[in-house]
Design a binder for these strands. Structure first.
Length: 1012
RNA sequence: GGGCCAUUAGCUCAGUUGGUUAGAGCACAGUCCUGAUAAGACUGGGGUCUCUGGUUCGAGUCCAGAAUGGCCCA
């Protein structure tokens, strides 16, 4: 006996019970340990930070992360899955700063780095409980009890080792380069962080500035200019960089015009005159850009007048301080980066504030003036000193205007990068930063990407491939507090650097000291660890930087194992690389990249072989979800309302994973009804009748005689098994799920519907046994196929259908083997035959509908026209199903559609197919129809009276002679269908359940009573 | 300025190497069927397959360009 299954179901309750079962019986651990000697299948979990609540997009990625390893485990792989937590970095520091009300790094240092970091450490697991609850509730099977944690000493030590490897290969260097700098956080951002913070439609000033040409330089341009003041016109959207101007750049091959504007001359690119409104003015002269190179002009702001240092490039990054000069002049240089698309064709160069500017400074040995500090405030004694640069813009513009140097001032809207965490505008700023020279292995990065299978495919050579092609060195140091410390020590006296690759190595250093217990490799404790300089007798102290937290997570493939200090066989025992990773598309430049870069640098191998790259979740209207907009969907209420399986199935099958998807609660409920409930109803149907007939799948069944219908659904089932295996092997759970969906629909709408009477017939003949066996096999196979997708429903089916009958079977579907297709059972011809039967039945029902004759009324004949001879043969083979489905006595075929248009026919046509029914209802047919009508009424009455499906009854009837005749002629049929022991003409006892009907013009009274 | 992706019914999506009249589910309206009943069947309305060119006997599908939206880079 199976556990009875009602057609109504509360999925949420069912899931909670199964969760409890998994917990009690340790199913997850056993699903792994049971395969311990098999080939490994490795998922790398991209670590989230648990300092905030998990969102619906985390459910999405966890579902996709889960489905593949579950499948692989059932395929026989050893598939341990380890949770991970990202615990370092700016996001964490920012949350704590917010709580403490800090606004700068000075606040943190005043508060104490030790106390600050202690708060960071505490904060990163604040929502751990919520994360664990969600993870367990959605059945993302991952080892939450032994996660890797990026802030643990062992993890940090592995990162140190990795950095040391790169250091020894000469791939770590300190560069003096322009980097995107966040003035609020006081640190540089890596390019992948910058990528996270671009904002369109940012308003900025757009100003055209006049630079006065030195009179002594005028003759280099033309002899005619001596009578008026001459200016170069340059354009910028960052007026605050103008005090740092030390050169102007022109395009050597383009034409520049000297335009007479009032009592002055303006020099600018000829083709851009229209942009600034100098179209009709008199042009004095046209000259090549190259002729302007070397012309001198007056600085807008002589730094020496404002107490700001002026330095000059010597060679490469070396800068030498210059003597103050009252008559400072700068010069025009020719470069290849001047755009003729915007501005005035003359570019203002401030080497302190732009990458190309800096490079121009190096190559042309320009001056270097930086009047802005790391907080983004103007230093010195300018009228606008002390202000934040963006606030100083308008003062600078006003100042220049007063001095007659402003030509034009407007606003523009463009895309500008902001800090991805704190939203401050980023400043491009020349600073000392530590780099990893990823460009040295660019070819290897690209080559190793060849070995990775991306889904969707276009990411491989699109997003990700492009990113690798345009690779720049990884600026990986951060001037912050809560992070993996950069393991570089520097001698206080001789400035010698040394990189440390592990704790033992550090402890063995001569003069090592400062160690406190318990060991904590974070600041400020790590800053107290010192040793003797091997060169001089100075003290080696750690430099203050920490590293980019993307390095932490990107090193997880070694650091989670404390490699190489432990698990020395990591590279060869199957734990590296990952078979599979899965994150959203924003990780192309985040985790996907940091994993790839670090593994290429360390081992010259990719660290993952297959990736599913998910699109983002948008709200129902297609807008991005954000706390600010208030359109964020919380996973909790969705799970409570629809259950985890519904949410999982929706995520896995409703949209292709690579696309952005609109979140639709309505679709979740549709999925639940359409798919889960349909399957549940089939299951409930099966169990109900199987229990009545005491069907036991474990008993010896002898030779079965499967019907055509049975052979068809078994063919479809085996095809499905093959398709699902294939799709999952190809990392396409969406396709696999959709195939299952369509099978369940066929099973319910054709197999079960066509087979209902086979289960209901009271004789226990072999056909009935074949039907039970077939449907049983379908459901059991489905439960296994569905296990990776809807692990709860799958478990429910499996438990009741398999465990109850086969005590020796594994006690969870997740411990079972994934089904393998029996290709011999796949019958393509039968599949096509049945498709035709469904098609013809559909047309036949349409013809009935047009004629207004209900299906319950038998008809003499249907006539069919088909498109080919082979279809006619096909039809012969499955005729019986159509005859039964359409409730007709015979089925004929004709050669062309024309023959269907005879008198007495009602036709329905579609795409070359035609079905006609003979509409004449003979007295015999009418009587039979009446009998079926009576059966229908009696069935409804049985139910209304509250009888059980298997109860036997006595039926009483009263009517005219015609009714009695029908009752007599169709007595056996009526008794069998309604489980009536007797059909008695006459009035039933008082209190018997009875109804009056008018059937085919006859008054009938029917009554039913249960037989004990 | 550049790159990637998307655009098929009101919504969510299919649509094979180009080949009859472009499909499904949901939603809407009506009819029917039903001891699986919170299902199911049939009918109907709903499409300039985003647009413009091109290749072809033939284009939702291939090519070029554009538009809109999303993501990314500079």
């Amino acid at each position: 006996m199976f556990k009875p299954v009602a057609s109504r179901v509360n999925f949420t309750q069912m899931e909670e019970a199964i969760l409890e079962y998994w917990r009690q019986n340790n199913i997850f651990a056993r699903s792994i340990e049971g395969r311990k000697n098999a080939t490994r299948f490795v998922l790398y979990e991209g670590p989230p930070t648990a300092n905030g609540s998990p969102g619906i997009h985390h459910v999405l990625s966890r579902v996709f992360k889960d489905v593949i390893p579950r499948y692989k485990a059932m395929k026989g792989y050893y598939a341990p899955r380890i949770a991970g937590w990202d615990t370092h970095g700016l996001p964490v520091e920012l949350e704590v700063e917010k709580e403490l009300g800090f606004s700068s790094k000075a606040d943190i240092e005043k508060y104490g780095i030790d106390r600050f970091n202690a708060r960071c450490r505490e904060s990163v697991f604040r929502y751990l409980e919520e994360w664990n609850t969600m993870t367990e509730r959605i059945a993302f099977w991952v080892d939450l009890e032994h996660p890797y944690i990026t802030m643990e000493n062992s993890y940090i030590e592995s990162c140190w080792w990795a950095i040391k490897q790169m250091w020894d290969k000469g791939l770590v260097y300190k560069g003096y380069r322009v980097t995107p700098h966040c003035p609020r956080c006081g640190t540089s951002l890596s390019s992948h962080e910058v990528a996270l913070g671009y904002k369109d439609n940012t308003e900025d000033p757009s100003v055209y500035i006049k630079f006065r040409v030195e009179p002594f330089s005028l003759t280099k341009i033309s002899d005619k200019l001596a009578d008026k003041a001459v200016y170069f016109l340059a354009w910028t959207t960052t007026p605050w960089t103008l005090p740092g101007n030390t050169a102007l750049a022109v395009a050597p091959d383009d034409e520049y015009a000297v335009v007479e504007v009032g009592d002055e001359y303006i020099i600018m690119a000829d083709e851009l005159r229209e942009r600034v409104g100098l179209v009709d003015d008199k042009i004095l002269e046209k000259i090549k850009g190259s002729q302007l190179a070397g012309v001198y002009y007056e600085p807008l702001f002589n730094p020496h007048n404002y107490g700001v240092e002026r330095r000059r490039f010597q060679s490469q990054s070396e800068l030498a301080v210059q003597e103050p000069s009252k008559d400072l002049t700068y010069r025009v240089i020719a470069t290849d980066f001047v755009s003729m698309e915007e501005g005035a064709g003359i570019v203002h160069i401030a080497p302190a504030f732009g990458e190309v500017d800096y490079e121009a400074g190096m190559s042309d040995l320009l001056d270097f003036v930086n009047p802005v500090d790391l907080q983004g405030k103007i230093i010195g004694s300018y009228p606008f000193s002390g202000k934040f640069v963006k606030d100083a813009d308008k003062d600078i513009i006003a100042d220049l205007d007063r001095r007659g140097l402003l030509f034009r001032s407007e606003k523009i809207h463009h895309t500008y990068p902001f800090c991805w965490r704190c939203d401050s505008p980023l400043l491009y700023y020349a600073k000392e930063t530590w780099y990893i020279k990823t460009t040295a292995v660019k070819d290897r990065l690209i080559a190793n990407n060849e070995e990775i299978n991306w889904y969707p495919q276009h990411i491989k050579y699109g997003r990700f491939g492009d990113w690798l092609q345009n690779n720049v060195d990884w600026a990986f140091s951060r001037e912050r507090y809560w992070g993996t410390p950069l393991p570089v020590w520097q001698c206080e006296s001789c400035a010698n650097y040394e990189c440390i690759g592990g704790l033992e190595e550090l402890k063995k250093k001569p003069g090592f000291g400062g160690l406190k217990e318990p060991l904590d490799l974070h600041r400020p404790y790590v800053d107290e660890l010192i040793f003797d300089c091997p060169g001089c007798q100075g003290k080696m102290k750690r430099i203050t930087e920490v590293i980019d937290c993307w390095f932490d997570s990107g090193a997880m493939f070694i650091a989670q194992w404390h490699y190489p200090f432990e698990n020395e066989t990591l590279l060869s025992d199957g734990r590296f690389p990952a078979d599979y990773i899965c994150e959203a598309v924003d990780q192309t430049r985040g985790w996907f990249y940091s994993l790839h870069a670090i593994s290429t640098l360390l081992f010259d191998r990719p660290s993952y072989e297959n990736v599913i790259c998910l699109g983002h979740i948008l709200d129902a209207r297609g807008d991005k979800m954000s706390k600010a907009r208030g359109n964020v969907v919380e996973p909790g209420p969705m799970l409570d309302k629809y259950g985890a399986d519904a949410l999982r199935w929706y995520f896995l099958t409703a949209n292709p994973p690579g696309n952005a998807r609109r979140f639709s609660e309505q679709l979740i409920s549709e999925v639940a009804r359409q798919f889960l409930l349909t399957l549940w109803n089939v299951y409930s149907f099966f169990v109900t009748y199987a229990n009545i007939d005491k069907f036991n799948p474990a008993s010896e069944m002898g030779k079965l005689e499967p019907s055509v219908l049975d052979r068809w659904i078994m063919s479809e089932l085996n095809q499905l098994v093959a398709d699902v295996n294939n799709a999952l092997e190809n990392y396409n759970p969406t396709e696999a799920g959709r195939k299952i969906e369509s099978f369940v629909s066929d099973l319910s709408k054709w197999y079960v519907r066509r087979s209902r009477r086979r289960f209901w017939k009271s004789e226990n003949d072999s056909d009935k046994l074949a039907a039970y066996t077939t449907l049983y096999r379908c459901l059991v196979t489905l439960s296994k196929l569905l296990a990776p997708f809807t692990p709860f429903l799958a478990e429910e089916l499996y438990h009741n259908l398999v465990c109850s009958a086969f005590p020796e079977a594994p006690d969870s579907v997740h411990l079972a083997d994934f089904p393998i297709a029996d290709k011999d059972k796949i019958d393509k011809r039968l599949s096509a035959d049945t498709r035709l039967a469904i098609k013809i039945s559909s047309l036949g029902r349409a013809a009935r509908s047009k004629a207004g004759i209900k299906v319950r009324q038998p008809l003499a004949r249907a006539v069919v026209s088909l498109t080919s001879k082979s279809e006619r043969q096909s039809l012969e083979r499955i005729k019986a199903q159509i005859i039964d489905e359409l409730n007709i006595k015979e089925l004929k075929t004709v050669d062309n559609e024309g023959e269907l248009e005879s008198a007495g026919y009602q036709v329905s046509l579609e795409a070359g197919y035609g079905v006609a029914i003979v509409t004449e209802i003979t007295p015999e047919l009418a009587a039979e129809g009446l009998a079926r009508d009576i059966v229908h009424r009696l069935q409804t009455m049985r139910r209304s009276a509250g009888f059980d499906i298997a109860d036997y009854i006595t039926t009483y009837y009263q009517g005219g002679a015609y009714i009695k005749q029908v009752m007599d002629n169709f007595g056996d049929y009526i008794r069998q269908e309604t489980l009536s022991r007797e059909l008695i003409e006459g009035i039933a006892d008082e209190g018997t359940f009875s109804e009056k009907y008018k059937l085919a013009g006859n008054e009938v009274t029917l009554a039913v009573t249960r037989v004990d």
